[in-house]
Every structure is written in structure tokens, then in C-alpha cells.
Amino acid sequence: MKQTILDYIKNEYIDEDEADEVELDENTTLISSGIVDSFSMVSLKRFLEKKYSISIPDDQATPEAFNTVASIIQLVEKFKK
């Protein structure tokens, strides 16, 4: 799951000309660093819901929950059956 989410973020939200400059791992801050903006967060939520067949309530999709891949994995695990 970690690599799937990392790959998605890298391919969707990091421009090609920035890819070499951005070190992305499960503890990289996504929102506070600007990698994921507000619309990207909504998009990422949709991706996670479709990929893992879960439903994440809007009020759980907080900047804190989406700020690192580690916290995103925790969120997904919370809603996976």
C-alpha cells in the first residue's frame, strides 16, 4: 500500500521538472510542503476510496490525516473492512 500511494502522489502531483528535487517517502510532509494542495487532497481521497473500496467521511479527510503517506495509510486502514 505504501508504494502504491507514493507512486500515485509522485505521478499525479509532482511535476516532471521537480521530480529529481523532491524526496518522497512515507514521512515526507505533503500538504505543509505544498506537494498536495487542497484540490489534490480531494482527488487523493477519491483515489484511495476507489483503490481500496472504502468510504472516507469528508470530516476525516483533514490536512493532518493527509499530511504524510504514513498518516494516509493509517486513515485507509481505519476504514478498510
Binding site: E12, D37, F39, S40, S43, R46, F47
Partner: peptide
């Protein structure tokens, strides 16, 4: 960026 992301869904 909005267009690109929206088109993927």
C-alpha cells in the same frame, strides 16, 4: 492542474 487531475477520475 485542476483539469489534469479531474480528467483522471
Amino acid at each position: 492542474r485542476f483539469s489534469r487531475i479531474a480528467a483522471r477520475h
